[in-house]
Design a protein around this nucleic acid. Sequence first.
DNA 1: TTAGTCATGTAATCGGTTACATGATTTT
DNA 2: AAAATCATGTAACCGATTACATGACTAA
Lengths: 190, 190
Amino acid sequence: MALEHAILVSLLEKPGSGYELARRFERSIGYFWTATHQQIYRVLRRMEADGLLDVHEVAQRGRPDKKEYSVAPPGRAALAAWLHEPVQPESIRHELAVKIRGAAFGDPSALIAEVERHREAHDDRLRRYLAGEARDFGAPDVPRSLDVGQELQHVVLRGGIAFERMTIAWLDDVLDTLHRLRVPPSVGRP
Amino acid sequence: MALEHAILVSLLEKPGSGYELARRFERSIGYFWTATHQQIYRVLRRMEADGLLDVHEVAQRGRPDKKEYSVAPPGRAALAAWLHEPVQPESIRHELAVKIRGAAFGDPSALIAEVERHREAHDDRLRRYLAGEARDFGAPDVPRSLDVGQELQHVVLRGGIAFERMTIAWLDDVLDTLHRLRVPPSVGRP
DNA sequence: TTAGTCATGTAATCGGTTACATGATTTT
DNA sequence: AAAATCATGTAACCGATTACATGACTAA
């Protein structure tokens, strides 16, 4: 049930509409949790009904009205309580890994293009993260003084960066392996 | 819909019962996909009804009968077709990261124990993966010659190992940050 | 004029988790 | 005697995805 808590964190960092939250889930929050706008709207309504959030409609010129959500005291309490509960260490779900292992029952070299596509996507994401890091937290050689919230945001972003770097290195390993498997392994035999 | 495909891959590697599949999902397949026995049984019945799998009951001495599933020709075809479809690069979902970012609105040092617990869990998993690697694929200095299926299994396992190593390093970074935040940053100011 | 952004929603379906349930056998 | 393993399932619920829908404004 971490979506609710991710929303609480995001709204505490800055109040906003469902639409704005959906956009944040595409970027900053996106490197540790994802959600579509449909789901966000549904959860927002439920959380408001439960008294965790306050809403007020904001009229805008030239744009549709929006409902700006902010965290109500019970929402803050719910987040504080959750921070003291243990969550269980998660496992990954990696569909591409299923495919790689499945390739043994098809043509492994047919996967090369697919793996390269994934590599590109992760490389793009890494670039975006690094750009965001430089923008929000300063370049490594030009450190800024940050408050607690920023320090924590930064360490989470470093996690996203580490994940992308690791994934890219692994996909290179996968590509290497797929290429090696195309030529029968004859070297080294007597 | 990768669970079906993960099951097809696993059953192609070796036929087995729902119970056995559930066990495999706790270990080898577990480092890229997870599933509980309830879900596995449900999906197995559906796949059998769809003609993707064959079943035959196996009587056992001293143990309950089991239904051994194996991949039927249409199942093999379904897997082959899926291998040619692109899957989209996934994002991670990391509940702990939500917590870390949420800690800014509570007591960050209260998270230290929780993060240490996660670090332990990932360290355990890493050890199991490394033990499995040595057992199934030989130590790095004593390489074995492997067939295509084994090579692909190995590269996926290397991915799991890389993921755990990266996660442990990141959690150390997180612990470092949480410790630093306990003492007010006074060094370096005039 | 077409595409893109801002903004919110409904409906259907599927995938996954949690809790509950049974029962024999084997190991400590 | 108790706990663990082998083996299979039902029911309820929740979380998440996909498809569909609307409508105004803005920029290429």
